[in-house]
């Protein structure tokens, strides 16, 4: 599981849904959708420190800095280790927001020509992220 630290910079609620804007460390903006509002949970507050959680299987990797796709949560990062299995490969990434891992099919490794040091953009959809508050 990936866990990054950030703080809430803004929120838009519509009914019971809220799009939460979070700034990760390194001033990386992220959009997260939750089925909660500031009225239903106490951690939805502007400025509140928050943990951002997502599974390593939910991370999308691109070699383009700004890929022209519908996923807008982008974290620039760099590969620092590869752990290769027969069908799955774990990519260890460093970013200004903190370390992350991504789990890819091993076949993707050669198609994308990933090696240690490769610069990438990590993408994660707004609906795959959970917020946690201690």
């Amino acid at each position: 599981m990936n866990s990054l630290k950030g703080h809430i910079t803004g929120m838009q609620s519509e009914g019971s849904l809220t799009m939460v804007h979070v700034d990760l460390e390194g001033n990386l903006p992220l959009e997260v959708m939750v089925i909660d509002t500031p009225e239903t949970v106490n951690y939805l507050r502007n400025g509140r420190e928050i943990e951002v959680l997502f599974k390593e299987t939910e991370l999308i990797l691109s070699r383009e800095a700004i890929p022209n796709i519908s996923v807008h949560n982008r974290i620039p990062c760099r590969v620092y280790r590869l752990e290769e299995g027969k069908i799955l490969t774990r990519i260890y990434l460093n970013s200004e927001a903190g370390p992350m891992t991504a789990l890819l099919p091993t076949t993707a490794l050669s198609t994308m020509q990933l090696t240690e040091g490769t610069a990438l953009t990590a993408l994660v959809k707004f609906n795959e992220i959970m917020l946690a508050s201690r």
Binding site: I35, D36, V41, K86, L88, T89, M130, L131, A132, S133
Partner: peptide
């Protein structure tokens, strides 16, 4: 821990198996 995930259950670990990575 307060987690925003709405699909939340509590349970008991029965087994943990390592498979590949």
């Amino acid at each position: 821990h307060q987690v925003s995930g709405k699909f939340q259950f509590t349970g008991e670990i029965l087994r943990i198996d390592k498979q590949e990575l």
